[in-house]
Design a protein around this nucleic acid. Structure first.
Length: 934
RNA sequence: GGGCGAGUGGCGGAAUUGGCAGACGCGCAGGAUUCAGGUUCCUGUGUCCGAAAGGAUGUGGGGGUUCAAGUCCCCCCUCGCCCACCA
């Protein structure tokens, strides 16, 4: 059926640019494996694969199920981090991971697995919107054109995706379910007793029966549920939801006209996208209660097979620390309590002052009306001489807020602050200690207030030194510490040159009820916590750096919230039956971009769709008018769950069928190792170590708690592919210039238009202007050569420089292999039924064993090297005997199939095989030929 | 400042568990084919000494453990990444 006819004239003109650097085609033997033949082979087999649907992976049930080939195979889910469909298309750095998963997926399919391998598009986001703002063209049009272009590029590289499962986050049929998941979170609360999410209806029921009483003191002062009004009850319930509205300082980026999550703000205090300055502003925004999951997000890292550095980054981001919450009453009014968090409760006796963050809510209650006598002038701040404490504080707070994070960083060594005029009582000894305001204490961590122990904390030491505060040592430093500071052991803390922050034996820490003296640090911590708890002055607590996730954006091109506001201005979730909430058409997509110093509250672009915004709906108590939520979801929303939609992309009844979900997400035991489920292999770049990978773990856990998915974690195994680096060039202004236009070399120097430029090596991409278009590579060598080169150039997880020169190496390999099996002049097979000599057979079977092993371990670079070695031996054999033993030819085509699928399929076909090589079993080595018989 | 990772020929890299360092490819050199260039094929290619045989030396630097170290331990240097006033 597919036997290839003999000589076939090749008259392709595809990518003839390639011949400028190679000989004219008339001199190449007609069946040499060069660009033209490779391209012809590739197009033909890509068409065949698509027509036959060879990459369709059957589901166990539903519309994507199928009888036959794969129904009884074990499953394997191989996933890529899906791309943003950018207008500039792919460069050769993008597909590195995609080729890696494709090779792995193809190999495992040949190992007998039903492999799910699909590709989607993370298509909401800024570039399409910005383009729409500039051109007036709807972002959907640009987005869909970009997706079509990217899909074409993936197909041309021979990536074997199940195209029936391709989704884009911008599809209404997709974001309908993003909105549905939002509703699951909205209609859920976190039960800290069982440490999991439960439906909000169960919370309401618990309130009704009195099993649970509202304990949200700040809202309802502990009143009984039954005594609350309807609106008060709603407010209590809303404050328990996993999604909630919060008026709090958020990262406001005027340059982008939107708020940003902490994760989207760089250390320099700028937006990760666009590099605009970001300011803290109090705004009413949606947040997701990811902090409830802090402990599980942390501890479940132990269950999954992820690279240690990524786990570490997540652990650092979650930032768990054990310590104590301690209450410090105000001296003049013990009813006012300043609560602090400390990791060193053992140093409590050494707390000689306190500090509040500038934004601390208790500030107004604490500030004294006038300065106490005999305080150093530096305590009164740097403002006008006669200022009251309140005025001095106000000046300082303004100063602190005006500083950007960059300035804070630069000035971090210089401690500034102002005395509030108030004193608090150290709970251990009743001593009055002054309370300061200083910007080295951050409102965003702990309680926004600290007890300062200058003898044992570097920052407190610096502040205490600057403000002439007492430094009282309560932990005995080690002899080595004294020695390294040229002090004799036991020197008084007043003479220490810096804080001693290590563990040691407690000293000077005793009152009438408790003494820590002589205890080591861990023992001192637990004893003082015990004492604090007995006195109701504190408790042992665990604190996290992780903040709740800011979930709303003032953007057009994102998922609308399934939320409306009623006549009280309170949010009401729409019922499932009203989904999807589609984006309205509007004229102007631009966000409201504000200038510096403009403090007005911006209205999101959706506010312009007035007919859409104001709606009359019947939500159960008759038609009433409502106002829609104007914010849209952040780009992370769709990427939080797209891997679940691949499983069942056409389902209109559920986001995924439960049986289908269980089938693909169950723990696989391919190599006998225990697995508790999730995607079997997830490949992507390290840049998503905290953002996407933390958010999607969070959503997945909520869905797990609510019974919608069967595994507690989404991704069993994570693998980070490296980046492709390329030379980039900077001109005299320090601006990147297009690398392809630069002339010169290392010796003579580099120039652009005669101007000297300097070379550096950087991640390939648009920002460094050093992209290489994959089409020029497979135009000149074929896609199989590009695939093979990217796999051969180094380990998948390592960064590696792009070196066009090296591509010829793998191209020659394919050419030599081809020549060993196919006569270049006639196109006839050069395969014999005879078996080769024993040395060649031994090498063949060693290669099969080695390549199998390498493929399983994602070591494609050494797999390619082994295949080249085998081919070198085969070349020698063919030179001597004139043809290739069929055993070698067959095994070679199969082993090469995952890496270079087109040429393998072609060889397979020429050898008379009727079915695609894609589904044939990978060869197995003969154990008898693996041992040397010396 | 803290944490993590990495340093192997001219270049990309290999050496899976402590066991012949440099697989495989690029580049380079020589040869065959060719009018020539290119292509293709063969041979060689860490460094130093030597015509060769052979010898010495060699995995960022220094020290150590071991019969044996690129691999393990200690100190130092360089580079990369992440976090960064986190109480």
């Amino acid at each position: 059926m597919h036997r290839v006819p003999s000589p076939r004239p090749i008259t392709l003109t595809f990518m003839c640019a390639a011949s400028s650097s190679s000989p004219s085609s008339s001199e190449i033997p007609p069946f040499r494996y060069a660009a033209e033949l490779a391209n012809e082979i590739e197009r033909r087999h890509q068409n065949r694969w698509e027509a036959e649907g060879v990459y369709h992976s059957p589901n166990p049930t539903g519309p994507l199920s199928a009888d036959g080939i794969a129904a009884d195979r074990p499953k394997l889910y191989v996933l890529d981090m899906f791309p943003y469909p950018s207008g500039s298309g792919l460069h050769v750095g993008h597909p590195l991971g995609y080729i890696g998963t494709d090779v792995f997926a193809r190999f495992q399919r040949m190992q007998g697995f039903n492999v799910l391998h699909a590709m989607g598009y993370d298509a909401f986001g800024l570039p399409a919107e910005q383009y729409a703002v500039q051109t007036g063209q709807h972002p959907r049009i640009t987005t869909e054109a970009n997706i079509a272009n990217m899909r074409r590029q993936f197909r041309a590289m021979g990536l074997g995706h199940d195209d029936r499962r391709s989704v884009a986050t911008t599809d209404v049929a997709f974001y309908r379910w993003t909105q549905w998941i939002f509703l699951q979170l909205f209609n859920a609360w976190f039960d800290s007793k069982t440490n999991r999410a439960r439906p909000i209806s169960e919370l309401i029921a618990a309130f009704e029966t009195g099993e649970h009483e509202p304990n949200n003191a700040s809202h309802q002062n502990g009143r009984k549920w039954s005594s609350l009004s309807g609106l008060e009850q709603r407010s209590v319930i809303d404050s328990h939801r996993l999604v909630y509205l919060d008026e709090a300082p958020v990262n406001w980026c005027p340059g982008l006209g939107t708020v940003l999550a902490n994760e989207e703000v760089t250390a320099e205090g700028r937006s990760e996208r666009g590099n605009f300055p970001v300011y803290k502003r109090p705004l009413r925004q949606w947040k997701m209660r990811i902090t409830s999951y802090a402990e599980r997000l942390l501890s479940d890292l132990d269950l999954i097979d992820w690279p240690e550095p990524i786990k570490l980054m997540q652990r650092n981001w979650i930032g768990r620390s054990e310590g104590a919450a301690v209450s410090f009453p105000l001296a003049i009014d013990p009813g006012i309590i300043i609560e602090v968090f400390t990791t060193r409760p053992d140093t409590l006796f050494g707390a000689t002052y306190m500090v509040l963050a500038p934004e601390h809510p208790l500030m107004d209650q604490i500030v004294a009306s006038e300065w106490p006598e005999n305080i150093p002038t530096s305590w009164r701040g740097v403002g006008e001489a006669g200022a009251t404490p309140a005025e001095a504080i106000a000046t300082y707070v303004r100063y602190a807020q005006s500083k950007s994070d960059v300035e804070r960083k630069v000035e971090s060594k210089v401690k500034t602050g102002v005395f509030t005029g108030a004193f608090a009582l150290n709970p251990t000894n009743g001593e009055q200690i002054p309370v300061f305001v200083a910007d080295y204490v951050l409102m965003g961590y702990g309680t926004g207030a600290i007890m300062a122990v200058p003898a044992h904390d570097t920052r407190d030491f610096e502040f205490a030194t600057a403000f002439e505060l007492a430094i009282v040592g309560v932990v005995e430093p080690t002899p080595a510490w004294f020695e390294s500071h040229d002090l004799s052991p036991g020197t008084s803390s007043a003479s220490w040159p810096e804080a001693f922050t290590g563990d040691g034996l407690a000293m000077s820490s005793a009152n009438d009820e408790v003494t820590l003296n002589g205890l080591d640090t861990p023992a001192a911590k637990s004893l003082i916590i015990e004492w604090l708890e007995k006195r109701s002055a504190g408790t042992g607590t665990i604190n996290y750096k992780l903040r709740d996730w800011l979930f709303s954006r003032q953007r057009y091109w994102g998922e609308p919230f399934p939320i409306v506001y009623d006549e009280h201005g309170l949010p009401v979730a729409l019922p499932e039956s009203m989904l999807p909430v589609e984006l309205p058409e509007i004229e102007d997509y631009a966000p409201v971009v504000l200038g510096e110093g403009d403090d007005s509250v911006p209205e999101p672009p959706l506010g312009r769709a007035s007919e859409w915004v104001n709606v009359t709906l019947d939500l159960g108590d008759g038609p009433k008018s409502y106002r829609r939520e104007l914010n849209t979801m952040p780009q992370w929303a769709g990427s939080c769950w797209y891997y679940l939609r691949y499983l069942d992309p056409t389902n209109t009844e559920a986001f995924v069928d439960p049986g289908v979900e269980k089938y693909w997400m169950q723990g696989s035991h391919a190599d006998g190792t225990p697995a508790f489920g999730g995607v079997d292999l997830y490949v992507g770049g390290v840049e998503h170590a905290v953002l996407h990978l933390l958010y999607s773990r969070f959503w997945h856990k909520v869905l797990f708690d609510l019974g919608h998915v069967s595994t507690p974690e989404p991704f069993q195994r994570l693998y980070n592919q490296g980046y492709i680096l390329a030379p980039a060039y900077i001109d005299a202004r320090g601006v990147y210039v297009p690398a392809e236009e630069v002339q010169g070399n290392v010796e003579s120097g580099f120039t652009l238009n005669g101007e000297p430029v300097t070379q550096e090596l950087g991640k390939m991409g648009k920002s460094l202007k050093n992209s290489v278009d994959p089409e020029t590579i497979y135009g000149a060598y074929g896609a199989d050569t590009l695939r093979l080169y990217e796999m051969a150039m180094g380990p998948l997880d390592a960064d590696r420089p792009w070196n066009a020169r090296d591509i010829t190496g793998v191209h020659r390999f394919l050419q030599r292999l081809w020549r060993n099996l196919v006569d270049e002049e006639t196109g006839d097979l050069r395969v014999t039924q005879e078996t080769g000599d024993i040395d060649l057979r031994r090498l063949l079977h060693r290669t099969i064993a080695g390549v199998t092993d390498d493929m399983k371990g994602l070591r494609f670079n050494t797999a390619v090297a082994k295949l080249i070695e085998l081919n070198n031996a085969l070349t020698k054999h063919v030179t001597e005997h004139g043809d290739t033993p069929v055993e070698v030819a067959t095994a070679f085509a199969l082993m090469l199939a995952p890496l270079a699928p087109h040429v393998s399929e072609e060889l397979w076909e020429r050898m008379g095989k009727k079915s695609s090589v894609v589904w044939d079993p990978f060869p197995t080595p003969d154990p008898a030929l693996l041992v040397d018989d010396e």
